Amino acid sequence: MTRITVICNDSDYFLRHRLHVVERLADTGADVTVITGGKPMGKPPAGWRHEHMPIERFSFHPVLDANVIRRSLRHFRTEKPDAVHLITLKPAVLSGLAAVLARKLGSGPRQILITIPGLGRLMSPSSTRKRVADRLARSLVDASIRFLSSRPGVHFTFETADDCDDWLHRGLIGRHNSTVISGAGVDPERFHPAGDRRVRSPVKILFASRLLRSKGLDAFVEAARHYSGNSKVEFLVAGMVEPHDPDRYAQELLKRESAIKFLGEVSEMPELLRSVDLVCLPSRYGEGIPRILIEAAASAVPCLATDLQGCREIVRHDVNGTLIPPGDAGAMAASIIAAIDTYLADPELLDVQGRAGLKLFRNGQFGEDAVTEQFVRLLVDDKQTAAMSPALSLG
């Protein structure tokens, strides 16, 4: 039996984006343990085990980071997994180094799969972090990734070719040990168009993401204020509160903001998407492929997003949405307003672009099955996986 350990920095992120891979691994007969940071998870369903491990997500912390290395090493030496899947930057560096050390001690995994969903605020080429501590942290991460990439059995996955090319150009990884996989996968059985895609009045515009300024929430709110009192348009905000993130947008401010309707964290995102006319994500963040944009395309909802890598993977300008240039909150709000005015002047455009987005989703490798199968093939012996799913292809 193949033993696999998955380590992710946040339990909520794991449950929303990576759970289906673990369930599929369990279906192949693998013995799977999932270790996450963030909030402690409830009892997992039968088929895999869960452990909680505190992981500092927003900065490098010597004591907590050393503890991640220590606990990862102890797990690898005790459980002796055949493969590990390390998701996001902190587990990649800290647990990755622990996995290599466990090998030296005779009990490390032979396969180390590292998934970088997006380069984020620290590693993005457009990062504005200039502090000495940030530059030092980035140098240490670079050195760690370069070291891990030189070890046998280590493979990296990215959501965009731009992210992969950036690390290739910087000499952190090689072409032989890197793969681009289109997002985390969206289930078309859950995310699908509403039966009636008529244009609604008012036009409902949704921001759904983590409640961060770098995700463009400040620009979205500023644009919404421009339309205050306009009965033809309604602005909705749904998303997770990040209480410890220094870039967070205070929940209290959103509740008091008359220009928007604040929905809080929404569990039934498929239903919400089928009730809106446009998804807006004016992100300035180092994104992978934002899941909300893939979900919108699967639901035949057009998107208004930033002309950045990641967003461009799923949004085509004037085809299934509108891409606006990155900038400060005021400049992006002005671009959002101009785009919304175009939709209000020609509401049928929403339906045309929504259908185009659905076609793009169906023609791409964005579905949950296609994405899951690629990860499983990287973690489990190809012959075993092929015997389980002969009809599925990597495309």
Results as ranks from 00 to 15, higher is better:
residue 246 P to I: 07
residue 283 S to M: 07
residue 305 A to F: 01
residue 215 K to T: 10
residue 352 V to H: 01
residue 197 R to W: 00
residue 46 A to L: 08
residue 269 M to D: 07
residue 17 H to E: 06
residue 305 A to K: 08
residue 356 A to M: 02
residue 386 A to V: 00
residue 187 D to R: 11
residue 355 R to F: 00
residue 131 R to A: 11
residue 309 Q to I: 11
residue 298 A to E: 01
residue 215 K to G: 04
residue 236 L to W: 02
residue 28 T to Y: 13
residue 313 E to F: 05
residue 321 G to C: 01
residue 150 S to P: 11
residue 68 V to C: 09
residue 258 S to C: 09
residue 205 I to K: 01
residue 40 P to A: 06
residue 117 P to L: 04
residue 127 S to I: 06
residue 184 A to T: 11
residue 162 D to Q: 11
residue 84 V to F: 07
residue 297 A to K: 02
residue 225 R to Q: 15
residue 325 P to G: 05
residue 41 M to K: 09
residue 158 F to M: 00
residue 51 E to V: 11
residue 231 S to H: 11
residue 105 L to Q: 12
residue 153 G to L: 08
residue 41 M to Q: 10
residue 122 L to E: 04
residue 28 T to Q: 12
residue 31 D to W: 09
residue 150 S to D: 14
residue 31 D to Y: 00
residue 46 A to I: 09
residue 357 G to V: 03
residue 223 A to R: 06
residue 187 D to V: 01
residue 355 R to L: 08
residue 97 L to N: 05
residue 383 K to A: 15
residue 195 G to P: 14
residue 47 G to H: 08
residue 260 I to V: 15
residue 233 V to T: 07
residue 130 K to R: 11
residue 97 L to C: 13
residue 119 L to C: 01
residue 311 C to L: 11
residue 56 E to V: 09
residue 242 E to A: 12
residue 128 T to M: 12
residue 325 P to W: 12
residue 78 T to N: 10
residue 359 K to D: 00
residue 39 K to I: 07
residue 117 P to A: 12
residue 115 T to V: 03
residue 121 R to T: 11
residue 181 I to W: 09
residue 3 R to S: 05
residue 44 P to D: 12
residue 369 D to Q: 11
residue 68 V to K: 13
residue 215 K to Y: 05
residue 339 A to L: 00
residue 139 S to I: 06
residue 91 P to S: 12
residue 120 G to H: 07
residue 221 V to S: 10
residue 171 G to Y: 14
residue 203 V to A: 02
residue 19 L to P: 06
residue 126 S to E: 14
residue 377 R to H: 08
residue 318 D to R: 02
residue 182 S to Q: 08
residue 4 I to R: 04
residue 95 S to P: 04
residue 46 A to D: 15
residue 207 F to Q: 06
residue 97 L to G: 04
residue 235 F to R: 01
residue 199 V to A: 02
residue 251 Q to E: 13
residue 136 L to S: 10
residue 57 R to A: 08
residue 390 P to R: 06
residue 153 G to A: 04
residue 299 S to M: 01
residue 70 R to S: 09
residue 202 P to G: 03
residue 224 A to F: 07
residue 125 P to Y: 12
residue 387 A to Y: 03
residue 164 C to G: 03
residue 77 R to F: 01
residue 360 L to N: 02
residue 362 R to E: 09
residue 26 A to H: 15
residue 41 M to T: 02
residue 359 K to G: 00
residue 58 F to Y: 10
residue 57 R to D: 03
residue 391 A to L: 15
residue 368 E to S: 13
residue 356 A to E: 10
residue 392 L to P: 01
residue 21 V to E: 07
residue 199 V to Y: 00
residue 180 V to E: 10
residue 269 M to W: 11
residue 33 T to W: 12
residue 5 T to Y: 03
